[in-house]
Design a protein around this nucleic acid. Sequence first.
DNA 1: AATGAATGAGTATTCATTCAT
DNA 2: CATGAATGAATACTCATTCAT
Lengths: 210, 210, 210, 210
Amino acid sequence: MSNTDYKEKQGVTIDRILVAALEVFSESGLEGARIDEIAKRAGINKAMLYYHIGGKEALYSEVIHQIIHHAAESITKNIKEATTPEEKLVTYIRNIAGIVEENPKIPKLILREMISGGKNYTESAVQDIIRILKIVSGILQEGSDKGVFIETIPVIIHMMTLGVFGFLSISGPLRERFAFPKGIKVPDARIAVEEFEKLVLRSIQQERKE
Amino acid sequence: MSNTDYKEKQGVTIDRILVAALEVFSESGLEGARIDEIAKRAGINKAMLYYHIGGKEALYSEVIHQIIHHAAESITKNIKEATTPEEKLVTYIRNIAGIVEENPKIPKLILREMISGGKNYTESAVQDIIRILKIVSGILQEGSDKGVFIETIPVIIHMMTLGVFGFLSISGPLRERFAFPKGIKVPDARIAVEEFEKLVLRSIQQERKE
Amino acid sequence: MSNTDYKEKQGVTIDRILVAALEVFSESGLEGARIDEIAKRAGINKAMLYYHIGGKEALYSEVIHQIIHHAAESITKNIKEATTPEEKLVTYIRNIAGIVEENPKIPKLILREMISGGKNYTESAVQDIIRILKIVSGILQEGSDKGVFIETIPVIIHMMTLGVFGFLSISGPLRERFAFPKGIKVPDARIAVEEFEKLVLRSIQQERKE
Amino acid sequence: MSNTDYKEKQGVTIDRILVAALEVFSESGLEGARIDEIAKRAGINKAMLYYHIGGKEALYSEVIHQIIHHAAESITKNIKEATTPEEKLVTYIRNIAGIVEENPKIPKLILREMISGGKNYTESAVQDIIRILKIVSGILQEGSDKGVFIETIPVIIHMMTLGVFGFLSISGPLRERFAFPKGIKVPDARIAVEEFEKLVLRSIQQERKE
DNA sequence: AATGAATGAGTATTCATTCAT
DNA sequence: CATGAATGAATACTCATTCAT
């Protein structure tokens, strides 16, 4: 076995741990998660988890970090392919929606962490959050400068976005368990994205004078 | 001491427990909360908590129930004082914002509970949630019937509302801990309400033809 | 209400407590029994139990005492109506069998107490036990003197008797829960008494020379 | 240390737990026993008890199972060395007596369990009980077929046996604590076995016609 | 790197007993 | 006598973490 294979193997193990950890932490939260359960789902011995990562809180922070970093990278990259502010905003929204839809564990974990005041954000996680906020800010500023958007407060847009898709995602089980009465429909993901895009654009677009 | 005082005393003890429980559960979640801590903050013997309420999960459910019931009652009552759909919608939004602002523990608790899939909602809590959804639904329907609102999906409006104010509330500590760079402003509560009202109304109001 | 009625009422309450206590102690043992359960079954407030009796151990001892005292009284009285040693022995055996059959809670309680080394026998309970042993002893001695019984050790006879009927009684639930395979029959109470009388008499009767 | 030693070590720990558990359960019963006490006497950390066995009730059931299984094995084996029904019956009786004498904790535990209705017998424990009953049944049937025993009910013989030796064993402390008056002798174990053998044989042997 | 065993510091819950009224 | 409330001392069980091999 070559040295590279060796490192690969280690990387694979760590990945398995992180995947299992995201699952368990999102289901149960930091306090509720059990190290035994994470190790079991990762298919490794519990002591190995300590060997590779080093403890519950370190593992939790690492999971958070990976998620936010991936989101920041993804948004940064995708936004480059858009040209107008409207396109960029839509790209940003769809990116958030896509991450949430692809893995519903993620909004659960991020929301939990926000609720607990971001106690476990590492410095680099904070930097990635700021990076995302700056992107949104930039899009809105550009739109405002070009006269297509009214002036608004970027953080509100960001929160509305996280809020809507986060809530849509986490409220899923609830809607299944308790049958809501007729007249109250909850949209599926695709429709929700379209509807939300429309609402946001309507809310910040300059009214066109003709 | 009169008989009334006597009965009051019991109610007072239970109230103290519920207040303390909201605090601790919102800070630490169901799993993270410590019964000892709740009893301590309520100023009672731990066993009394079991005597009056009956265990951690029952206590948690009761706290959730009280919050949602109070919200449903409050919205139901206030909405009656409004006449037009726009006024009603604004009343609803300000009501949610008001509850959140009055006690920032509440959004934390409710968000946590939603994330965990509403496992601990009692049937009456579910009924109260449905009640609120029906109110929002009614307002939007009325507006649509009267031609002032476009047709939209009530649950999205509800979730945007919960999402924005919930997020504004829970992201507070985060903003304090990590100083955001200039250019990214987060509005204070009053401004956030106004801004959000404007956005929502803009997003669903029929464009007036003249 | 007269003073007599008053005392009657108290006696009734105490009786209810004792009956409930026998039930619960026999089902669960001293450690397993719950004061709340006893009070509930007696239909009284828990604090009243303390007022009337004074605590768990005192209650337990009192129950034991009443049972043994009643047994001693009953045997003493019935034995007088028998004349020959054989009749007396049969009377004694049937008396034990009768007490056990009448209230299956009793053998459970007495056996439990014997196992724990008689820790909770009061002095008067011990005296009553000795009284019973002396009766058995007397019957066998008389039989031996008259040449109808061989010499034997009374305590063995007493223990065989308690053992057989106690076991028959307590093994009831077991036999019901697990269906024994054919070929292993357990006699009903009436047959058991007859069979046991026969065996005991056969075992100690002098062989008659003709 | 060899691999065998390693596996032995685990077995040793479990054995220590089982020995300590038999002690404590027999002294205090299932409800009265304290896990801390068992762990202390086993010389292990309390958590290891849960790691290896899995809780109070599982431990209790395991102890019961081991005892009954050992008894069934022992009787099955020893009976093979006997030839006549009389010899077999005596072997069976001495076996029961031997187990009881060797470890007086055992009758206490078994009696307690019988009193509580065999709630904690595992299926395999029930099978072992049936195995023993079948042996007794077989001996008596053989004796009856060969004309040396009268027809009788095996379960009564079994219960007399358990009853006598169980009672002799558990009544020991009682006899020591309260000095019985002269004239009431309780036999020591050796004499009790002989006396009981004689009585049982007398009771079921066919009278020989000459 | 891998694993079964070990540990200590919790943590929810129970319950006999007492108190205030 | 009667009762609901209060208390403190247990007690079974858990779990993150470490150790020996």
